[in-house]
Design a protein around this nucleic acid. Structure first.
Lengths: 247, 247
DNA sequence: CGATGCTCGATTGTCAACGATCGAACGATT
DNA sequence: AATCGTTCGATCGTTGACAATCGAGCATCG
């Protein structure tokens, strides 16, 4: 086995129909549920930034042992939601708006640009149907003004596309940054008409179905590019306030 | 070399004399060495992509128990070096050149653009000295043609700057993607003159010392932008080959 | 009265054993 | 002979107990 057959994309079964959310699974390991419980608790603000997370307390609270909690904390650390120190435990981490706008959103744009192009040639009718379903959910939520539901569907929409791209590292990075973006959307989503958000996704789906990269990317950039009120430009200027050179 | 092992400063109102890299406080306090051992083994190619990693074997091999190995695998999974499936274990993951060029490098550019601006206003003379030291190491390595040493110093150089930015999420994302980029550099670094690489870092340091964002970013982009031979553009073309519409 | 060293509680790090699940080989049935 | 159900080994997931470490408070000493 000396031959190195280049880069392998190791996947057990590369089925176009992605693993659906829950249906055909036998049993999800405890630890994974712990991750989800803690993650949603953190993004929901039930734990405040700076708060300490004690393994024993969490394990009792969640009805499991410390092992799964430990692994969950490790994962959350890699999702940037907590930060831990040797022998001193973990604390909840906040995300500054600036870092979201200047770093996480641009990264997201890079990820999506790439995945959309790849996903378009791999998505099946079932996948498109899934996207349609999420849009429908968003429509319903828009009527009742339920921002949280919209954001959920929004992220699921993009998760489907990115997952369909079949690019393992792109998917992996996306999974580690989107929990941090979610909080930002929940905070500032109100600055935009909910109907607009739904409409944009409808256009995104249409663009995907054309399978034309240029159309998709154009649509994508106008969708993601300028969410925040108007803070991005300000920063570049403000930061240089003291270092503002003529040049 | 084990520098980025522990989690470094969060940002506790640090004074001018910032605590530099994690100094030899006490000793290597924990079996997080397992992570480093496995990581270096993977990036060094001692485990091939697709190879299975069995917890028991690894624990025996490393003289520890399965607990630390488990956590190490989780961390490596979040660094994209392995991928694991419930009840089926972990396999080593490869990185395609395309994904590095189209996703990871652009992400890196985003991260660095942001951190350079922030770091410049926070870096101390000691930090600049550290950068100078890495450049010196690169010079020496360039003379002997030791690509691996250069890449190591290269990554440490950028790690110092990004760490100095004091932006926790930027640092965190960087730490999860640079192990994947390292392999790419080792594969294709030869396509570029080693002296050029050193020179670029010298210019990068000078740009940092001007503390002028525009100068820094310009230098940065010319440093990172076009590493690969000429594959990036090709792909964009090839991709659109079938989808070249008039529109 | 202030500084130094020490004990102690709280919490994390590690370990070995037990239970659950998967995949493959094997045998029974038609 | 081919298909289906079952057993079995290998491996992962979980648990509870034990050891190591940190930080705070207290006592002692100058």
């Amino acid at each position: 086995m000396g031959e190195h057959a280049g880069i392998v994309s190791v996947e057990p079964h590369d089925s176009p129909s992605a693993p659906r959310t829950v249906a055909p699974r036998k049993a999800a390991p405890r630890g994974q549920q712990v991750v989800e419980a803690l993650r949603s608790a953190i993004v929901a603000g039930r734990y405040e930034p700076g708060e300490r997370l004690i393994e024993t307390s969490l394990s009792e609270e969640l009805g499991t042992s410390r092992g799964p909690v430990r692994e969950a904390l490790r994962q959350l650390e890699n999702e940037g939601l907590v930060m831990s120190f040797p022998y001193r435990g973990a604390v909840v981490l906040g995300v500054s708006d600036e870092e979201v706008q200047e770093v996480l959103i641009p990264i997201r744009l890079t990820l999506e640009r790439y995945s959309f192009v790849h996903a378009a040639t791999r998505m099946t009718d079932a996948d498109f149907a899934e996207l349609g379903k999420e849009i429908w959910v968003m429509e319903q939520a828009a009527k009742t003004g339920d921002l949280e539901k919209i954001v959920e569907a929004d992220l699921r929409f993009h998760d489907v596309v990115i997952s369909s791209s079949g690019q393992p590292h792109t998917v992996q990075v996306w999974r580690t940054i989107f929990p941090r973006i979610r909080g930002y959307f929940l905070r500032y989503g109100r600055n935009q008409s909910l109907e607009t958000m739904v409409a944009e996704h409808r256009e995104l789906l249409e663009a995907l179905q054309t399978r034309d990269p240029d159309v998709m990317i154009a649509q994508l950039e106008s969708h993601i590019a300028v969410r925040p009120p108007a803070a991005a430009a300000k920063r570049a200027r403000a930061r240089g306030g003291k270092a503002a050179p003529a040049s």
